[in-house]
Amino acid sequence: MNEDMNAPTQKIAIRNLCKAFDSNEVLRGVDLDVEKGQSLVVIGGSGTGKSVLIKSILGILHPNRGSIEIDGVDITRLSQRDRRKFTDQVGMLFQGAALFDSLTVWENVAFRLIYAEGKSRKRARERAVDCLSQVGLAPEIGNLSPAELSGGMQKRVGLARAIAADPQILFFDEPTTGLDPIMADVINDLIVERVKALGATAISITHDMASARKIADKVAMLYKGQIIWNGSPKELNNSGNPMVDQFVHGRAEGPIKMEVRRA
């Protein structure tokens, strides 16, 4: 299944990844490489398997076939415990921010430091305030509960939480969905800035083309569970692939048929 020769700069190498839920095949042989320090954006329509791809890399879902190598080690063959060591170096911003609503904002940001790394609450809090300022939030925000924040602020807190433990790999699940265009751009800027500052490898999934162009070093398009195209953001406009073309320009007519039934 997997006999590739990794270049030493390859942070993540995915080969022939397949995942099905009962009879519904979501991923049908995904091949993807991400270099160290690179920011990859996976684009694709709803239901093409973008979230399943990320959750498989995170170890939340278990793929049926194929391999996912991080730093040359296939994490799909590791036990739960060993896999955790690899997924320990990741941070993720969830689509709905997924903040813990029973905790305050600063406890959310410091969650990993307190509960996984055993730091004192005082020191963890200092770090949380520091992370909040890195995403442009005042220290007082830390005492609020997540429900009191706007969508854009929740996303920023989610980003602060993802970067709090200096991860080497960052995942962004539709980081701009549900935000107004200005706030979306603020989030894009923050993502670019924080990923650069950490020197991290980033994988984002989105269907927001403005966001993709801004944060990507490399773009890959997922369609029907396979990567049908990849290239630099500049190549997006003349990809030579009619499906990518249709997606980038947002046309209803083209090779990608939406299943819409008309009365």
Binding site: T87, L99, F111, Y115, A116, E117, A165
Partner: peptide
């Protein structure tokens, strides 16, 4: 409570935070 945490991805988020 746990069900809401599940459907709003808070449980997934917790495992990405190494807890």
């Amino acid at each position: 409570e746990i069900g809401t945490m599940r459907v709003t991805e808070q449980i997934d988020a917790m495992s990405t935070l190494a807890v």
